[in-house]
Structures are given as structure tokens and as C-alpha cells.
């Protein structure tokens, strides 16, 4: 019953007119129908049309294009590669991003906001610039990363990064990382620090606390970030000329994931 009193203002707002929400959303709705849904529908329609080198697009209804995608192993390979890269990227992002968010959350105020700025900053820096940076770091067999790893004795022969899936996954993980850190961090923010202390007072060690207390509470945040990661498609490392063929892979900047408003 108490809900009634609490929702009274909400109900009051609702009552002010049943047509109001439609009037308020109508402009945006018309915009979306006019310049999003219609173009998309046109594209779907296009997929049933015929095309030839000399005759151009012919407005007929055929399933040739669909049949080609379904049967040509080139497309199957492409879809599978896209999917594989998305999964690997997501895993890498989660494995590194979640612990970093945890560490970040335990820092004191000033350091926390400084490093948050450092980690979130790349999010807002042009993807072209960032990808260029990776190309410079990977750059052939004597790129900076390979030089560093070999001088540290981690690897003996240089790893080919450029134009490989390894390089793509690393660069993509870099693009998605801020989203993961942000989502997990937002989830951690909602945790009551006293809960960790309570677990400790009951005799739980640090590993147990993370595994039994922290993880279950932040999983929703991880999942949200993960879903947005898998939505991303590889950003092409700059791949002069040939990129048109491989470039049907689109880059997807994913949504701000951490706050669902409802």
C-alpha cells in the first residue's frame, strides 16, 4: 500500500495528458523513420536486386546475393574471423580490464581521478590516431614492441603483429578497454566497502573476498561491457589499398555502457 503514496507524484505527472508523450517524441520519431528506417529498408531491398558489371543494379527480386553469402566459403570464413576476433578481444579486455578497475577503485581520491582520466582519455581520442600509434609500435619485424620484448628476453623471434589477427585483437582491446574499466568501475562504486570488511571479519582471505563477494556483485557490469565489446567489429589497422576488401569489417564504437537508466 505504501507504494501508492510514493508514486503519487509520478502518477500526477503521468496524468497531465495522454497525448503529451507522443507529441514530444514525434519529431525524433519522424526523423528516425525518415532517415534511418527508410534507408535501412532500402538496403535490405537492395540485397534482393541483381547487379552486373555493365547493366548496374536491376530492380528485380532474386535471392542470388543471399545464396552467394550462404554458399561461398569466403563469406563463411569472413564471418567466422569477425566472430573469433570479437570473442578474443572481449576476453582480453575482461581479463585485464576488470582487475584494473578493482585496483583503480582502491586508490585514494586524487590518484584515482588522475588514472581514470588517463585510462578514459583514449576513448575520446581519434581512432585514426590511436590505430596509427599501434601501427608505429608494431611496425614490421623491428617495431618497438618486438624490440622491447626481445631485449627483455620474453621472445626470441619477432612476433608478426601487422596485418595479423594478433595485432587486431591487441589494438581492438585497446579501443574497448575504457568501456570495460568504466563498466566494472561503475559496478564497484555501488558496492558497500563495509561488505568487504564484513567478509574479512568473518575470516575470508583476499582471494575468497574477490571470488565470493566482489565478483558476484560486479558481474552485471562485466556482462554489460562484454556485450558491448562483442558488438564491436575489428577496426582495420591501416592497411593501404587492400583495406577496401578486408574493410567490410566495420569499426563499432560501443555505447556508454555503465548506466542503464532504467
Amino acid at each position: 500500500m505504501s507504494a501508492v503514496a510514493d508514486t503519487a507524484p509520478q502518477a500526477a505527472a503521468k496524468e497531465r495528458g495522454a497525448r503529451a508523450p507522443w507529441a514530444m517524441t514525434a519529431p525524433a520519431l519522424m526523423l528516425f523513420v525518415g532517415v534511418l528506417l527508410i534507408p535501412l529498408a532500402m538496403t535490405v531491398l537492395l540485397s534482393f536486386h541483381d547487379w552486373g558489371q555493365y547493366k548496374g543494379i536491376e530492380p528485380v527480386f532474386i535471392l542470388k546475393n543471399w545464396h552467394e553469402i550462404a554458399t561461398d566459403p569466403y563469406y563463411a570464413e569472413m564471418f567466422w574471423r569477425t566472430f573469433r576476433i570479437a570473442i578474443l578481444t572481449t576476453l582480453l579486455t575482461a581479463v585485464l580490464g576488470a582487475p584494473e578497475a578493482y585496483i583503480l577503485n582502491r586508490m585514494s581520491g586524487r590518484w584515482k581521478s588522475f588514472f581514470l582520466l588517463v585510462i578514459l582519455g583514449p576513448l575520446l581520442i581519434s581512432v585514426v590516431a590511436r590505430t596509427l600509434g599501434w601501427a608505429l609500435l608494431f611496425g614490421g619485424n623491428n617495431g618497438l614492441v618486438n624490440k622491447l620484448l626481445m631485449s627483455l628476453g620474453v621472445i626470441r623471434a619477432p612476433i608478426p603483429f601487422m596485418f595479423t589477427e594478433t595485432g587486431m585483437v591487441v589494438a581492438l582491446a585497446h579501443v574497448m578497454m575504457p568501456f570495460m574499466v568504466l563498466s566494472v568501475w561503475a559496478a564497484l562504486q555501488r558496492l558497500d566497502p563495509q561488505i568487504e570488511n564484513a567478509a574479512m571479519s568473518l575470516g575470508a582471505g583476499p582471494v575468497t573476498i574477490v571470488r565470493r563477494i566482489v565478483m558476484p556483485q560486479i558481474m552485471p557490469g562485466c556482462c554489460r561491457a562484454r556485450s558491448s565489446c562483442s558488438r564491436c567489429r575489428p577496426a582495420p589497422l591501416p592497411r593501404p589499398r587492400s583495406s577496401a576488401a578486408a574493410g567490410s569489417r566495420s569499426r563499432r564504437r560501443s555505447p556508454m555502457t555503465s548506466s542503464s537508466t532504467r
Binding site: M1, S2, V4, A5, A8, P9, A11, A12, A13, E15
Partner: peptide
């Protein structure tokens, strides 16, 4: 007590509810 309708009555006087 909460939920007894007192706030709703007030809202009706105020005009936020009909």
C-alpha cells in the same frame, strides 16, 4: 499511515491529480 490516501487527496486539491 502511509498509503492511506492522504497525499493523493492533497494532490487532488493541488490539481496534480484529477
Amino acid at each position: 499511515p502511509s498509503g492511506c490516501g492522504k497525499t493523493t487527496t492533497l494532490q487532488m486539491i493541488a490539481g496534480f491529480l484529477d
